[in-house]
Amino acid sequence: MALRTRAVLVHRRTELDELLDRHATRGQAEFFLRTRGRTLADVEARHEAAASARRAVAASVPSDWALAEVERADLDRFLFAPEDVVLVVGQDGLVANVAKYLDRQLVVGVDPEPGANLGVLVRHGAEDVAEIIGDLADRQSDVAAGQGDRVPAATPRCDELTMVHARLDDGQELHAVNELFLGHPSHQSARYTLRVDRGSERQSSSGLIVSTGTGATGWCASIAHDRGGRRLPAPTDPALAWFVREAWPSPVTGVTMTEGVLGDGAELVVAVQSDRLVVFGDGMEADRLEVSWGQEVRIGVAERRLRLL
């Protein structure tokens, strides 16, 4: 029996939601905003735009599909199924937040604000979703009826974006679509031995950044710019750029291995020599791996990809 397709609508709380949590009433929130040169009307308009986009996206889901909604804060507790179609209503960062919990599910990034500029990962307006979902449903119907050869593919064309993967020697692992950070939780000096290719070096630094081509326009781009503009991979390239931040030279730590590119199959191996370091991806510091003295972390191109429409 064929599994029922489920649309998963991912969103995050709006600024208005968070203001009301903090200040309790609209009047208090309005006063707070006014002291900072802003108006409550602007915040409410953006809140309503987000709510309207979510309603439009939910209404686009066919009646024979299941529908689930999940907030950003609950992503680490939500179980995605292989047949899910993930509809992310928000900015680029929200797509990156959800990507680490997926394994080849189709993702549609939806901009909640009419007329706003689309991003790298958010490529569609809410008004486009009905047509996109309709096309997906039609393709699935053709395949179910044994007519799959009459359409180009069972799913529409999408980009398969490279992801980065970290694995600890105790089996814990983490994925990210932009970049991984490894270092001290407060960005103080971290001590470790770095191995890549056939070389190794003991280092003390404020951490390592390992970035995909998708993340090459963000945190990684600023580091690359400061170092003379190293060529960075494209989003679909099976390669990662890596940089050591603020490596400190001393009699026992070196600074000769501070940047490079990892191809598919290559790994950056970090043997930790600090009491407590962390690994987190795409800015989600709360969802992280903790690494203690003597543990080893291996970072490389992930087997999974982000399938983005």
Rank of each mutant, 00 (worst) to 15 (best):
P152R: 08
Q188I: 08
I209Y: 01
Q147I: 15
D103L: 12
H175T: 14
H165Y: 07
G171V: 13
R167G: 14
L121R: 02
A154W: 15
V98K: 05
A96W: 12
Q188N: 11
L87T: 08
T212N: 01
H187A: 10
E160W: 03
V122A: 14
E179T: 03
G207V: 02
G171R: 14
V89I: 08
G146F: 05
D142V: 15
L121T: 05
S189I: 12
T212A: 04
E83R: 11
A166P: 10
H184W: 01
D138H: 15
A176F: 12
G134H: 10
T162M: 04
G115V: 07
H165F: 14
E131W: 07
Q172K: 15
V210L: 09
L194W: 05
F181E: 00
H187R: 10
A153R: 08
E201C: 08
A137S: 12
G148D: 02
G183K: 00
S205Y: 02
G93S: 15
V143E: 13
P114M: 03
D170N: 08
R167N: 06
H124V: 12
Q91F: 10
V177E: 11
G134K: 09
R191I: 02
E201I: 04
L106Y: 01
S205T: 00
P152A: 05
R202S: 10
D111K: 14
R195V: 08
Q105F: 11
S189A: 12
P152V: 03
Y101A: 15
D128P: 06
L106F: 03
G93A: 15
S211A: 13
L102M: 04
F181C: 01
V95K: 03
Y192W: 15
G125T: 05
E173A: 12
L208R: 03
D197E: 09
T214F: 09
P156D: 00
L94Q: 04
S205L: 01
A145K: 13
V98T: 04
R150G: 06
A144H: 09
Q140V: 11
A144T: 06
R139W: 14
N178K: 04
N178I: 00
A153L: 02
I132Q: 02
V129T: 05
H187N: 11
G93M: 07
V107I: 12
E179W: 15
V86F: 01
T162R: 11
E113G: 11
P82W: 13
D111C: 07
A137L: 00
L182S: 00
D103K: 08
L174M: 11
